[in-house]
């Protein structure tokens, strides 16, 4: 089936089978491999992207369902070579170790800060309940998001 999507500001028209998840479409067709698949069943959050401005788990959306949507992936977060404040904050605060959950964490956090630019620690922790990290104990991830929120003011 043919779908038309805008990904990171660029329009793509692709032929996909209905079985293909949006995550697989991004990875295999558009070769945007920054979107990771950790569980493939919407539990771990590694595949999080924003779809029409909202953080969603792309493994549990069929590519055909995304027809007509605007998508941002981790690759599209930096603008004009300038890191997004969340990307800088994750590096500055050691908010990542193996890096596998990181794109999903950052995209989730970007959705979170869009809706709530001044989250409390508790709101950040609850906002991350759909994302597993097995490396950091979340300590520096929460710190990174706090710092990013601060720097985005």
């Amino acid at each position: 089936m043919q779908i038309k999507v805008s990904v990171n500001g660029k329009e793509h028209i692709s032929d996909v089978v209905p079985m293909m998840s949006l995550a697989s479409y991004l990875r295999e067709v558009l070769l945007l491999t920054g979107t990771h698949i950790g569980c493939d069943t919407s539990s771990c959050g590694a595949c999080t992207i924003t779809l029409d401005g909202k953080a969603v788990k792309s493994c549990t959306i069929l590519a055909v369902q995304a027809d007509g949507s605007e998508i941002t992936t981790i690759e599209g977060l930096a603008k004009n070579g300038e890191m997004h404040p969340l990307q800088s904050a994750f590096k500055e605060n050691h908010g990542l170790q193996c890096g596998f959950c990181t794109p999903g964490m950052i995209m989730t956090a970007s959705g979170l800060l869009d809706e709530n630019p001044n989250p409390s620690e508790d709101e950040i922790r609850h906002g991350l309940e759909g994302n597993f990290c097995r490396c950091t104990g979340y300590h520096n991830i929460v710190k990174s998001i706090q710092h990013a929120a601060e720097s985005m003011k």
Partner: peptide, 9 residues
């Protein structure tokens, strides 16, 4: 329900 990503979809 679930988490923010699930609630969004």
């Amino acid at each position: 329900i679930g988490d923010i990503q699930v609630r969004n979809k």
